[in-house]
Amino acid sequence: MKYYDIVGAYLDNELEGEALRDFKTELATNPALNKELEFQQQLIEGIKENRMLDLKTRLDNIPVSGGAGAMTFGKIVSGVVILAGVGYGVFKIIGIDESSTQQPDIISEVVENRPDAIQPATEDEPNQNLSEEEAGRVQKETVITRKQDTVEDNAMEKLNSGDIITPDVPEPIDEFETDKISEDDIVVPSKNLGTMEYPDESNLEISIISNRRKYKFHYQVKTGQLILYGNFDEEPYQLLEINAGNDKHLYLYFKGKYYEIDKKTEEVAPLREITNRILISALNNLKDKSP
């Protein structure tokens, strides 16, 4: 205890001049003085620790809105806006063609493979046989998918950079990219409207049956013959054929609308109107070029 005051004065920087020099000299040779110094240094450290914990407790009790890793309201709102934007863009594009939303499995598979040309399905996989309608859809979907990737990548980059995010909505694709289907692949019917027309390659004979109650607007492909059920005598019709790889797809043009003819269907099937704008555009182009 006899060193308490002098050590306290030293630690509080109250010693100066000769008193300070004498203290340091004594410190070099006096173990008891050293022990007292060490003890008081630890007292001061304990006091500091107490204050630090006091302040930390105070800070701990302050409510904060969550750390950087937490989802804030702003982030959630931004996320919803981005999703809504991307979703709206996708809806705008896909919404052009209702049928394209009906068979997402085929589309996603083809998009995943990213074919350069539309490949016909094998006989083992009849459900995956792509019609030209689907082919057009695939082409379009490929473009859409790539655009979606770009949108998401940009969004992620912006998220990471911490910038304010405004969704980039991809422009809907209205124009058909006609260079995707070569004109060489298109077989133009050789005859004009008003006659029974079909491509030479198909060797299909066409007959019309208009007196069936059950089948008023149907078709059937049977033993190399195309049977049209309905009043097809009232107005001229036209058959169009498009090559797709090793396969050919057949379409009926009647009263300003196009219908798909599935050559593999031997049962009587209703004629379904084609709504795919891209395919319609291609068929219009083909029809206009026909002699």
């Binding site: 302050i62 904060v64 750390g67 950087a68 804030t72």
Partner: peptide, 19 residues
């Protein structure tokens, strides 16, 4: 006043460590 800046800079400073 310490409370004020603690709240004000909380996200900015913790983000430094978390990232």
């Amino acid at each position: 006043a310490l409370d004020v800046i603690y709240k004000k800079y909380y996200r900015m400073m913790t983000k430094l460590v978390i990232s």
